[in-house]
Design a protein around this nucleic acid. Structure first.
Length: 419
RNA sequence: GUGGGCGUAGCCCAGUGGUUUAAGGCGCCAGGUUGUGGCCCUGGAGAUCGAGGGUUCGAAUCCCUCCGCUCACCCCA
């Protein structure tokens, strides 16, 4: 019967699912208010080059996964594959560098990547992220990381692991990469085919390989933190001191790298305890060179982004109890046309007074109407029949105690306004 | 892009010794005497058995092709 299906890798978020989404959004917004972060929304598509430049040509996201199209004027536009670059673009475009620095921002965004869908991975997914732009202080890294940790705790997730690493800056990273490549070139024969390709394309990702055959090479590989320059080293140590000060548990992992080119120094990731799935709930890091790359002055920045679907997946797995969404507590049933008109009028008046109500529809029996009220779970039903219309009253039934009394219809408003 | 698993009503699914009105449960709708819900009882609607082709007197069932879903790899949130 249906002529169309939802596009591959996308999701209809049905009413029954919305509790989770509202829950996560509310926690996220509360968190940002607590830390003084302000919302900034950007469009779903941008100039192709914004992403090509920021994430780096040669990354899979830019080369293979972007939804790019030419608009009617011939401009190359892309659906956003991530949230940070557009935020930086907006920061520059609207002169947010004139505000007191750092500028603290957050966003919810749909992001698009053309990939084969699987558990916790979609072609369109929702990200929640926050960014602090305009300060290189390691205390700001610590703030972002502590916010991330705080967020996960407030959601009620357990057993999460915070991984931390530093991949250096443009001064010290080239030196490290040389050593990494030398190490891998020496044991080339035992590497998996993917890793052979990585060695040329994206050496940092070598550390991320899951194949058994490559684990030894990773274990014995040089660690980025041993190649940091003075400044990067001091920065990284400082972050760790702040995190210890805050009592936030973290694990320095020399294997942790991030997929996008713009990261400098700090990288971190929050991992769920689950096995065999996309276990990164979110990740972030510092990107001190990105703003300049996009045409601004040299501006330090740090941020984090989380995948909403993955968070929700974990909330379900861990059976975190989610508060129900509010529903109307009054159901209005009627018998006959005159009563129906009264019912519609009454519902409108109640709603104007801020009292949520839902009315029956159609011409079903009272029995059927109350059956509906029952499945809606409203705690009260209002019944209007011919008698009530004549006497300007309504029958108010408490659905849990079954108590029912007749009251003047004008009384209803004040009765419910109280609770 | 590569590889595995799976496609029967909105949902969960029975049925693959070829012959059935394609069964059941949940949900939905309606009834169980006058205007009263949850439990129970009865009834109803709802499926071109993922699509197309082939074999056969006869296919949900066997064969081929395609499509879709799903999981993993790659990549990433």
């Amino acid at each position: 019967m249906p002529l169309y299906k939802l596009p591959r890798g996308t999701l209809d978020i049905l009413p029954a699912e919305q509790v989770y989404w509202e829950y996560v959004k509310h926690k996220a917004i509360a968190l940002c208010q607590l830390y003084g972060y302000q919302r900034l929304d950007t469009p779903a598509f941008e100039d192709f080059n914004l992403f090509a430049r920021s994430m780096g040509e040669g990354t899979d996201i830019v080369d293979k996964e972007m939804y790019t199209l030419e608009d009617k004027s011939g401009k190359k536009m892309s659906l956003r594959p991530e949230g940070t670059a557009p935020i930086c673009r907006a920061y520059l475009e609207h002169g947010l560098y004139n505000l007191p620095q750092p500028v603290r921002l957050y966003y919810f965004a749909t992001v698009f990547r053309y990939e084969r869908p699987q558990a916790g991975r979609y072609r369109q997914h929702y990200q929640f992220g926050f960014e602090a732009i305009g300060d290189a202080d390691p205390a700001l890294d610590a703030e972002i990381i502590s916010m991330t940790w705080h967020f996960c705790l407030s959601l009620g997730l357990k057993g999460l692991c915070l991984q931390l690493n530093s991949i250096g800056c443009k001064v010290c990273r080239p030196h490290y990469l040389e050593n990494l490549k030398r190490h891998y070139s020496a044991c080339l024969t035992q590497l998996c085919p993917d890793c052979k390709a990585r060695l040329i394309r994206n050496p940092l990702r070598l550390l991320d390989c899951k194949k058994k055959s490559c684990q030894e090479a990773i274990e014995t590989a040089p660690k980025s933190i041993n190649y940091l320059c003075q400044e990067c080293k001091a920065h990284f140590e400082s972050i760790q001191r702040y995190l210890e000060l805050l009592g936030i548990p973290f694990k320095v992992s020399h294997r942790l790298v991030r997929g996008l080119d713009y990261y400098t120094r700090t990288v971190f990731e929050i991992q769920s305890p689950g096995e065999g799935i996309q276990n990164a709930l979110g990740g972030g890091g510092r990107y001190d060179e990105l703003i300049e790359e996009l045409g601004g002055k040299s501006t330090a920045a740090v941020g984090f982004a989380a995948g909403m679907e993955r968070i929700i997946l974990n909330l379900k797995r861990q059976n975190v109890s989610i508060p129900a969404l509010p529903r109307p507590s009054i159901f209005i049933a009627y018998l006959g046309d005159e009563a129906k008109a009264e019912a519609i009028k009454l519902a409108f008046k109640l709603r104007q007074a801020g009292i949520a109500a839902i009315t029956a529809m159609g011409g079903r029996s009272l029995k059927a109407q109350l059956r509906q009220a029952n499945t809606f779970g409203t705690s009260y039903s209002v019944i209007i029949g011919e008698d009530e219309v004549k006497s300007q009253t309504v029958a108010l039934r408490n659905m849990t105690t079954k108590e029912q009394k007749t009251i003047p219809s004008t009384k209803l408003e004040e009765l419910f306004r109280r609770d």
